[in-house]
Structure formats: structure tokens, C-alpha cells
Write a protein that binds this DNA or RNA. Sequence first.
DNA 1: CGTGTGGAAGCACGTTCGTGCTAAAAACAA
DNA 2: TTGTTTTTAGCACGAACGTGCTTCCACACG
Lengths: 207, 207
Amino acid sequence: MPKIVDAEARRQEVVQAVFRIIASDGLERASLREVADEAGLAVGSVRHYFASSDELLVFSFGAVVDRIAGRLETALTAVEQEVPGSQEHQAAVLNLLGQFLPLDEELAVDACVWMAFRHAARIKPVLAPEAERSHRTVAAVVGRLILLLNPGQIDAQQTLVTEAERLLATMDGLCMHALLQPEWMTAEVCSDVLTAHLRSLSALTAG
Amino acid sequence: MPKIVDAEARRQEVVQAVFRIIASDGLERASLREVADEAGLAVGSVRHYFASSDELLVFSFGAVVDRIAGRLETALTAVEQEVPGSQEHQAAVLNLLGQFLPLDEELAVDACVWMAFRHAARIKPVLAPEAERSHRTVAAVVGRLILLLNPGQIDAQQTLVTEAERLLATMDGLCMHALLQPEWMTAEVCSDVLTAHLRSLSALTAG
DNA sequence: CGTGTGGAAGCACGTTCGTGCTAAAAACAA
DNA sequence: TTGTTTTTAGCACGAACGTGCTTCCACACG
């Protein structure tokens, strides 16, 4: 058998190059030639691992969705292991919601890439399945979080859906503003908005 | 003097073509050739009114910002003319917030175009000034709305900023979801989320 | 009635893109 | 060593892009 290369690792390296290009220059610059350059390969080499440009983009979209979903899942189990209402519980919730925001370099890259792919999916049908998976996955996490924050208090399915969508929309909006208007959107404002929203959620239980 | 045409009207026609292309095929398809085709003109004709592709895009961005700002301003004065707490006041507020969402064809096109340009502005520096103007204008409207909803109750500047950003993030998130996941995001869910958020705002006054 | 100016159209060049295809290089089996 | 197969690299073609430049056309004015 010939030269053996860890194919999966190579694909991940290429995907990382895609991420960097999207974060710095946008999705439209993520062409095969640019990606190959960024990855230190030739176009033909990239095409050996990804049959077409579409396949590369779909795979990259799936990769970033998996990364985000993994972080959220980890943070959610951390929330579940704390006593509701405790200080640690509150911190775990804030940590979970912080995973949506570009608070450090890695989160910022993922947020950029995630946003770019979701918007591109509106136009490019090949990206639609991953976009829907992304939405379902994240909505499920947020829904479970809403239930954790209101233990046994939400009876109506409609309230759950509404509050989950409300929190999700707020998070996406915050992420968007943090990416697009970083000078107006400091980490402190993000934190204030999050705590204000959580207060409105606990008011739900009280009412 | 030669053949006289209403230059401003022509420019608006071209801009409308840009809007249609962005809404249906995305910003990256808004090339001079595509825009000229959509407008029923030749490339040279479009370039007669817009010196370059960048100038066309910047002008189009400004046009959609003006349209949205105009709608918001109108809706805000309508809110101001109602008695706070009245049924009509509530309806006027919902009407104002509804201007952010793709509730009809025209609003949907504007929302698509607005989103596309704002995200493109992260990469293309020529679009940055309009993006900042857009943000400042809309934030000002939302800030005034927050003050109207809490007459004389908001003393701390920080609370105003936080609540304005919170409402703005929610609106942008809702708009985004309505554009990207229309099957999950019915008008009813939008309405429920809006009323839930407004309830959390009035809870602010009560507390 | 010219005639010159603004409007409309198009050509041509260089660049970038995806992709089909070919060929060298590298590494393991025999 | 030789042979086989993966990996890497590259060429070439058609399409689409922005843009500099030129060309036609029609009409308002002297």
C-alpha cells in the first residue's frame, strides 16, 4: 500500500483554513485556490480530499455546527449538575450563553463562520440541510435550558416555544451585533443584556 | 441640451433592481451585468449613473437604510401620539416593532437587503460608514421607544442602553430567523415573542 | 436647420473562478 | 529491485467579473 496520510486529519486542516478565510475575508473569498494557499497545499490536493467546492463548503459547515453543538452540550450538562438557583448554577448558565458570543478568538472565528454559512444557506440549497440541523440542535439546547431555568413551572407548550425562540433570537442578535458593531458592543454590554434577559425569565416563574 | 431623463428616478430604478437581486439571489450575484439585466438596461447604462460597482452598492445600502429609517420614524411618531398604556398605544408599539420583520413582500426584501449589506460591511470597508449610520439611526429609535415605554422610570443611563440593546438584539435575531428559517418562524411566533418581551419591559417599570 | 451634449450600448482586456484531466512524486507490497 | 496505489501538483478550458474606452443615438438649443 502507498503513502498513508491521515485523511481525516488532512480534511480538518483544510477546514481550519476555510474557517480562517471566512473569518477574515468572508465566505465569498473561500475559493479552492484561496483555501489551498491558506492550507499550504495545491488546488489539486484540496480537490483530492473534497470532490468539489460545494462538498468542501458543506463539510466545513457541518464541522462548525458540530463544534458549536459540542460546546453547548458540554455547557448544558454543566448547568444540569448545579443546584437550581445557586450561584454556581447562575454562572454555569451565563457560561452556556457565552458560548454563543465571540468572547475569544476561537469563539469569534466559529461565530463568523456559523453566521456566514447560515446566511449563505438561504441562497445555496446544498447548505440548507446543515442549516436546518444547526437550527434544530441549538433550539433543542435552548429549550432544555428554558426548562432548567423554570423547573416544573412551564406547563403550556406554547410558553416553552415562545421563550426558547425569544432567548435564541436575543443570542443571535447579540452575536450579530458583537461581530458587526464590536465598538458599540462590549463584553460588558453583552453581560448586562444577558442578566437582564435572565431576570425577565425568572419573572416568568414568579408571575 | 440632449435627451433629458429624470436621473434620480433612473438611479432608483437601478437600486430597485439591486434589491430584487439581493433578495432572491444574494449580494454576491448583484454584479453589474446582473443588475443591468434585471433593470432592463445595458452595463454601460448602469455605469453611466454609477461610476463603479462599489458606488452602486454603497448607494443601494444607503437607500435601504433610508427606507427603513423612514418607516421607523413614522411608526415612532405614531406611538408618541397615543396615550401610554392604552390599547392603541400597544398596537402602535407592535406596529413599530413589526417594521423590523419580513411581514410582507416589501418588508421582506428590505430585511434581506439590509442584512446582506450589514454582513458585507464587515468585510468591505466601503460599506462601513453606511453600516454605522444604520446602526446609530436604528439604535436611536429603539432608545426613544424604550423611554416611551417607561415614562420617567429610567434614571440610570446604563439601564437605557442595556434595554435598548436587548430589544435591538431580539429584533435582529427575530428578523434573522424569519428570513433564514421561515418554516419554524411563523408570524404568530414572532408576535408571541414580541409580546413576551414587552411584558418583560413593563415588569421593569413595576420592579 | 445644424450641432453639441447627455444617455445608452457595447467591445476588449485582465483577473478569478470551478472543474475535467493528466502526470509526477512518494511510499509500501512483492 | 519492481510494481501498485495514494497523494500531490499542475495545465487548460469556459464562464463570469469589473472596468477603460469607444461608438451610436436622440433631442434641446443657438
